[in-house]
Design a protein around this nucleic acid. Structure first.
Length: 104
DNA sequence: GGTCTGACTAGGT
DNA sequence: AACCTAGCCAGAC
């Protein structure tokens, strides 16, 4: 059976182009609503290029720092590439871009 | 096998 | 409205 991380990756890969999802939402979709932190941590250990980790943001609609400002900047760039517009506070309007998963 | 860590969240101050 | 605290749980050492 897949580990928690496997589930997380699976959900993240399902995020459609031009949309974003919060850690909590992904955790919930993965069947682990209390594991928002694990979601982020899972992505941190992520070493593959197939998982759109840049489409994952925190509940505030902002990019979660980590310890590397360069990564944050990169993520913002990638999201803008997908057509997502950031607010003046480097924030994303979740109401507009939040991924709405269709029932599976 | 106990302890520490961590890309979070919600609630209180 | 911004900052602080506690709760949460699966990996890594």
């Amino acid at each position: 059976m897949p580990s928690t991380y496997e589930k997380i990756y699976s959900i993240v890969k399902k995020i459609p182009y031009g949309h974003v999802a919060t850690y909590g939402q992904i955790a919930k979709l993965a069947g682990i609503p209390r594991h928002a932190r694990q979601v982020g941590y899972a992505l941190s250990t992520l070493n593959n290029d197939e998982t759109p980790w840049h489409r994952v943001i925190n509940a505030k609609g902002e990019i979660s720092g980590r310890s590397n400002p360069d990564f944050v900047h990169l993520q913002r760039m990638l999201l803008e590439e997908e057509g997502i517009i950031f607010g003046n506070d480097s924030r994303i309007p979740l109401e507009k871009y939040c991924w709405k998963p269709e029932k599976s």
